[in-house]
Design a protein around this nucleic acid. Sequence first.
DNA 1: ACTTTACATAACTAATCAGTTATATTAGGT
DNA 2: ACCTAATATAACTGATTAGTTATGTAAAGT
Lengths: 113, 113
Amino acid sequence: MENQTTAMLDRSFAALADPTRRAILLQLTQGEAGVMELAAPFEMSQPAVTRHIKVLADAGLIKRRSQGTKRLCSLSSEGFENITPWLSMIADAYGAKYNQLDALLARMADGPT
Amino acid sequence: MENQTTAMLDRSFAALADPTRRAILLQLTQGEAGVMELAAPFEMSQPAVTRHIKVLADAGLIKRRSQGTKRLCSLSSEGFENITPWLSMIADAYGAKYNQLDALLARMADGPT
DNA sequence: ACTTTACATAACTAATCAGTTATATTAGGT
DNA sequence: ACCTAATATAACTGATTAGTTATGTAAAGT
């Protein structure tokens, strides 16, 4: 009987724990991109990249939309909004000593979108 | 030829991707604790908890010191200082829209310890 | 209608992971 | 010296993961 939040945290952090997926996210900071574009920098098959993209989407870290035969990916705040409150719980524990993290989390809690 | 930073990010995020390990970190926000204490809330063997603790330590999320026959664990900022700069790169991409995250990361970059 | 582009899905494999039980180690107490 | 408490290590197992190749599908172009 695990709750959604916990499972979502699992997925979000796990998605971030892979260098290929982090590289994809960084590439997406440059804007929307299709699967082929995202796959280009890697010496890896297209299906492998497609799966990384699925993992990122399931974690709420990216969104996808169709445009013709393309599937354009872009960053999504959802996944990040999921992990930051949790990180802030830890940050609080560090107290003043670590309040930089605390501040970051507070600002994320303000939350846009 | 992967660099340390990348491997460290892998370890840090992967360590956070498990509910038991996150629960251990939360428990440590209450202060130092030995392995037995940390294991108590879980229906899990002691060796299993010991391994989770090792994963957290390898990720730089906790520190350990010996006191008699006990091994006291406490939160460590290292692992968090590792992931926040990376998160801030992503946060920058969101721009003003997501600048709460951006702010958090900026504050973490200030960094104590 | 046919081809091509862009992607998704399936079936398989090797490696890693999370847990188990059993056993070793290490420090303190008596 | 011996016993116990607290933890670590080893050997094993089942599940998940990341990659592969081969094949399927869906929208555009000709």
